[in-house]
Design a protein around this nucleic acid. Structure first.
Lengths: 333, 333
DNA sequence: TTGTAAGCGTTATCAA
DNA sequence: TTGATAACGCTTACAA
């Protein structure tokens, strides 16, 4: 069942059928009705592959993420879909598991014309490769921006400022012994930014940085659990732990409960990202909320703008975060 | 940069270039080398749209899920990707937010030849629509099977048996007052199956079913929190709560802590699915583990088999679940 | 208002 | 072993 068959059945030409399908050109009402009836009766669906080949665009966007198991992406992606749809684009998701090989396979969809643009959370391919892609194809970085080696459009929050704000908040609660749990993934620039924010926050409060309070710890409640064990066994344990992700914070809280500390009373805990788990733990987690809906929206709009105007130069958008105080930190007294 | 240009630059025909690309037919070593060199130098990538139009297949599979925020899908999807890739298929993900309109748009990718097959977690379109799709296109249901109205291939666990097993386990711990939290989403047949398993488990232990112990509650820790409140205010509160999902169980545990009950001691709690949160809570959650990797693998293989053999009839595969006992239920004494 | 036909980039048939 | 060419299904000048 193709357009030719529809044309035959409705006694007209493929051109007219195409006009009816796309609401383009001029078609007499009678013919239009006849064609529409045939389409309805036969259940004909235009072949997008033929159409894409002809029009040289797919009206599809690819959203690449390192993992599907981080709920942080959820709201962003919902927003992406919504705004893509509003602009007649479909969204396809790809999970890369931080495998550069797999990332390249998905980026191939750009070269091979299967998608018109890519929106990517932090990838693992090299800055050179990213620059090569952004130079030629529509690309937007979402929730990250590279260092000076990267030249690409991006939409994200000011991670340094966010970490600074959280430290300032903990200081305002009276804390002086503030530990931090942060990753050290090469290329994960927002971790570097958050570390800088943490250090500046301490410095601004006149608190010296203590090496034993800054622990490397990947995104995982189990690693955070172990890190909490290290921290609480220090000669001078911290009074607050800024875990820099909600799942790490959840791991810390679990440790505290299981070792006789009351989180939010004996030791304060803060997270980052405001994902579901931050409300599930007891107590709930004080955290930094990223403006997910807006992140998704701005990123998609930027991507579509670049698709429509290939000469557009790269652009960075920084959105505002917010600090959500919950029970894992003491109330100001 | 197209195949014609590559042919020109390497002084041969498009046919030969195509043979080189696809390792088909016969090409002399010298020519092959010449063509490959040009491809390398120019960075040529074959246009998949042209190829798909010609070959009438895309080598792409669509995996449709209701939401990305349920981490339960994560491991299944990783497995899907792995086995699809091993069979030269790419996997595209689509999130539908349980919106039948959006589901239809993605199913359109089948009609419009953008993907060769669809693997779907529980959708919201009608059984009739699903039957229409499965009759004509490769389709596999993953983690669900419809009722008698649905005729489609599926891969899932025996949900009734799983619920039965959990009730039997709770009974073996000495419980007689066992409540259950379950959804009541129309068409979510596995919820019906789990209810049946719950009832049979009680019956087998000679425990009468009590209406006030069976609460409808959607997938959400907040609703479960409220449900726990209702249960614990009954004249005769349950001694065990089978929450039928880990996030519900987490909500129950949160309620118990906040109201002076010790979960796993005063009241036992059980979940379902064995997602990350089941290890984050204090105590960890006793739950049913679905064989995620195997579910993804079998579903993908079934889908690919159906693509390769359109005359294949529908097939149902049931995989074994397992019960994981953790701290949210008392140890056998 | 309608139809003819070229062309999008590829693969595969067939002849050389 | 190679190359010319038709075909895949569609959109869109252009001509009628």
């Amino acid at each position: 069942m193709d357009i030719k068959e529809v044309a035959r059945l409705s006694g007209t030409s493929v051109a007219t059928v195409s006009r009816v399908i796309n609401n383009s050109g001029t078609v007499s009402p009678e013919r239009r009705a006849r064609v529409q009836k045939v389409i309805e009766q036969t259940g004909y669906h235009p072949n997008h592959v033929g159409r894409n080949l002809r029009t040289q665009c797919s009206q599809k966007l690819l959203v690449m993420m390192p993992t599907i198991s981080n709920p942080f992406y959820s709201d962003i992606i919902v927003s992406c879909e919504e705004h893509a749809r509003a602009n007649d684009y479909g969204v396809l998701l790809a999970v890369t598991n931080r495998n550069p090989q797999i990332e390249r396979q998905y980026f191939d969809m750009l070269y091979t014309k299967q998608v018109d643009g890519v929106l990517s959370f932090l990838p693992t391919i090299s800055p050179q490769e990213i620059n090569r892609i952004t130079a030629e194809y529509p690309f937007v970085a979402c929730c990250w921006r590279g260092d000076e080696r990267i030249n690409a459009s991006y939409v994200c929050i000011d991670n340094e400022r966010a970490a600074y704000d959280m430290v300032a908040y903990l200081v305002s609660l009276g804390h002086r012994r503030i530990a931090a749990l942060n990753g050290s993934y090469p290329g994960r620039t927002y971790e570097i930014e958050r570390e800088a924010g943490y250090r500046k926050g301490l410095a601004h409060a006149g608190i010296p940085y203590r090496e034993e309070y800054y622990l490397k710890c990947d995104y995982s409640h189990t690693e955070a659990y172990q890190a909490a064990d290290r921290l609480m066994h220090l000669p001078e344990p911290p009074t607050a732990i800024f875990a820099m992700s909600d799942d790490r914070a959840a791991g810390v809280i679990k440790y505290l409960w299981e070792h006789g500390y009351k989180p939010g009373v004996d030791v304060d805990v803060a997270g980052f990202d405001n994902v579901t788990v931050s409300e599930i733990t007891t107590p709930s987690i004080t955290t930094i909320a990223q403006p997910c809906a807006q992140l998704g929206k701005e990123a998609i709009l930027l991507l579509i703008a670049r698709i429509k105007d290939p000469s557009m130069s790269n652009k960075g958008i920084i959105l505002a975060h917010s600090l959500i105080a919950r029970g894992s930190t003491r109330t100001i007294s």
